[in-house]
Structure formats: structure tokens, C-alpha cells
């Protein structure tokens, strides 16, 4: 499988064949390529609704990667959330999402 590394902006062009990675320039790249072949993982960023008119949506992201195949499920969860507390950057919006140990965290502070 030919792929482009998305770990860092370098965007190394790699290929992976039966778990053997070539074209990577770092360990992270190798791990990424291996995961892409078996279970691709992604960080998901979005927003959740708030009850504050000054900031109707709050940006959020997963604090780790989740299986790419579960993005749809995560988005359904995200779309149902409404934040009513003045959260700060880094606060957990939803813990252990879509059956992983990854949390959804706020990436901004509600002003």
C-alpha cells in the first residue's frame, strides 16, 4: 500500500507491505503506516453546541486517536452535546467516547 504520512507536515511518501514500512523518516511514520494497513486511526476535531450566545459553538477534539471507522458514530455523539458550563481549554466535554479510552476535550475557553 502506498500512502502519505499525516503525522507531521513533512508528508513523507511511504509504502507498506505485510507490515514492512519503507519511505518513512521517523518511528512515528512507521507506526502510522502500520496502523493504516490494519486499523487506521484519526484525531477528530469539530465543535459542540453551547448555551452561550457569545459563543454558540465550542471547538473540541479527541485527545487521542480513534478508529477511522468510528468517526460517524463520534459525530452523532458530538452533534447531540450541548455545553452549559463555562468550560476551559483542555476540559473534558465527553469522556471515553465511542468505546475507547479517548476523551473529547475543549480546544478553546468559553468567553
Amino acid at each position: 500500500m502506498e500512502l502519505v504520512c499525516i503525522v507531521c507536515p513533512k508528508g513523507c511518501r511511504m509504502s507498506v507491505e505485510n507490515g514492512v514500512v519503507t519511505g518513512n523518516t521517523c518511528k512515528k511514520g512507521e507506526a502510522f503506516a502500520k496502523a493504516e494497513e490494519t486499523c487506521p486511526m484519526r484525531t477528530v476535531c469539530s465543535t459542540v453546541a453551547t448555551s452561550f450566545p457569545s459563543m454558540p459553538v465550542l471547538p473540541v477534539r479527541t485527545d487521542g486517536e480513534i478508529p477511522k471507522s468510528r468517526i460517524g458514530e463520534l459525530m452523532r455523539l458530538i452533534n447531540g452535546i450541548e455545553v452549559t458550563k463555562k468550560l476551559r481549554r483542555g476540559d473534558v466535554v465527553a469522556a471515553s467516547v465511542v468505546g475507547t479510552d479517548v476523551n473529547l476535550i475543549a480546544t478553546a475557553t468559553i468567553h
Binding site: P59, R61, R89, A108
Partner: peptide, 15 residues
């Protein structure tokens, strides 16, 4: 990634 050694969202970086 370069500045803080972490992958941040835009608002986090700004804040």
C-alpha cells in the same frame, strides 16, 4: 508540532 511538540487545534495554539 514544532513550537509546542504537540498536535493542537487552532484555538488551542492561539490561546
Amino acid at each position: 508540532l514544532i513550537r509546542f511538540g504537540e498536535k493542537l487545534a487552532g484555538p488551542e495554539y492561539a490561546e
